[in-house]
Structure formats: C-alpha cells, structure tokens
Amino acid sequence: MNKTMRITVDGRKIRASPGQTIMDACDDAGVYVPRLCDVEGLVPQGSCRVCTVKADGHTVAACTEPAEPGMKVENDTLEIKNYRRDLVRMLFHEGNHLCPICEASGRCELQAMAYRLRISQATKYPYLQPVRPVDASHPDIALDNNRCILCGRCIRASRDVDGKHVFEYVGRGIHKRIGVNAENLAATNASIDDYAMSLEVCPVGCIIRKREGFFAPIGARQFDREPIGMDVETRQEHHVPKRRPDPAFGNDGTK
C-alpha cells in the first residue's frame, strides 16, 4: 500500500504518496494550487475553497481531497481560475479590506492572491461594508475583524499548536465570525509568543502584532520580492516534502 502512485495535473504526470492530498502532491511536484485557509504546519480544513480543482470531473478542495491513483486533476484552467477569482472577489466585498492603509500590505496573502489572479478593480458584487470593532484590549496584540476572511488558521494554530483554544468560530452564515474565548482578547491567555500570533498564521491583517506595523519598508516585504506561490513553484528542484501534523495525532498536532 505504500507504493507511490501517479496522478495527472493539467496533463502533467506527477507522483503522489498514499494518503497525500492533491495539494500536497502538487506542492511536492512544484505545482502551485492557490489557497488561503491552508498553510503548512496546520491540519487542512477546506473552507476557503480557493484551492478548488476538478478531480475526475468533480470540483473538490485540493487541500482535503486525497489523491487517487490515475486521478486527472484540472488546476490551471480558465474555468477553475474564474471560480477562484469569484471566491477571492467575494472575500474583498464581504469585509473591509483597505490595502492602502493596512499594515499587512505586501505580506497579505489575500492581496497577493488578488494580484496573482489579476483582480485589480471593483466587481459586480456590492461592498457589504460591515461595521466591526477593533479589539485592542491586549497589550501586545490587536484584532481587526474588518480584515478577517474566516480562514480559521488562528483557531487551528491556537488549538493544535499552542494548545490554548484562544479562538473559535461564533455565529452562523453571513454572521459567522472569529471569536475569542473570553470577553475580549486581554481576558484570554493569549500571548504574543503564541504560534497563532505569528505573522505566518494570519494571512491578512486581522491579527496585529502591536507596534510593529510598517517596520518592513516597501520593496522588502514578502510579496514585494516574489509573487505568492512562487515558493512552491520553485520547490521542485529541492523536493522538500511539506511539513504537516501527523494524522495519527489527530487534532492535537505537532509544532
């Protein structure tokens, strides 16, 4: 059963190990599948759907769908790219994403994804312009829910890596938000040293490390140097397998 299999992505044959998701197999082969809610080091949850691909004709989330022998995957097709564009556009319209004044500009995965998908202007959707307060109660961390895209990476990082459960989803449907497990962030056991509070966990500018904003000059920020996904696309030469929590440990994961 441990024998590697072959799947086809946009006509190109790549190897996949048993139990690997489509995304992991693609990452190992240097094929980038765009994603926002998934990040190396956390259990995938398939909620943002930006990694949508067609596998043998069915639309699935590449981050959660296991690779099957002989599977034919469509990733970089016009149809799939249009799905992704719509999904990312809706994220912009649902929150208050003001890139010009946001300290995450230049390292924001949502912004970088928009650039990668060539989204550059307003679309047919209305801006919902929700009114969401900033929680700046914690001495070292602030939460600006206006920028949250509900990826849940902070929930998984706090729960699975920090073992703290600082964050959780609250509400349903369009009212669903990220909540903290107390009256405000200051009343939780959150710490600036938590993995959940590191710059790599929040893909946008929702979790703010206080008094560090705009330290990186324009030109030296993460996505000023290279577009999002290029790290995966240049991975082929090194063939470094992705770091993932061991499924045997379930949600208790490893750091």
Binding site: P100, I101, E103, P133, V134, A136, A142, I208, K210, R211, E212, G213, F214
Partner: peptide, 14 residues
C-alpha cells in the same frame, strides 16, 4: 478614531 497609532501616518497621508 479607534485606529491604531502606528497606522495613523499611513492613513492620514491619504
């Protein structure tokens, strides 16, 4: 009002 202090120089220049 309500914005964080290090954001201010970037916001008001707009």
């Amino acid at each position: 009002r309500g914005r964080l202090l290090w954001e201010v120089p970037v916001i008001v220049q707009r």
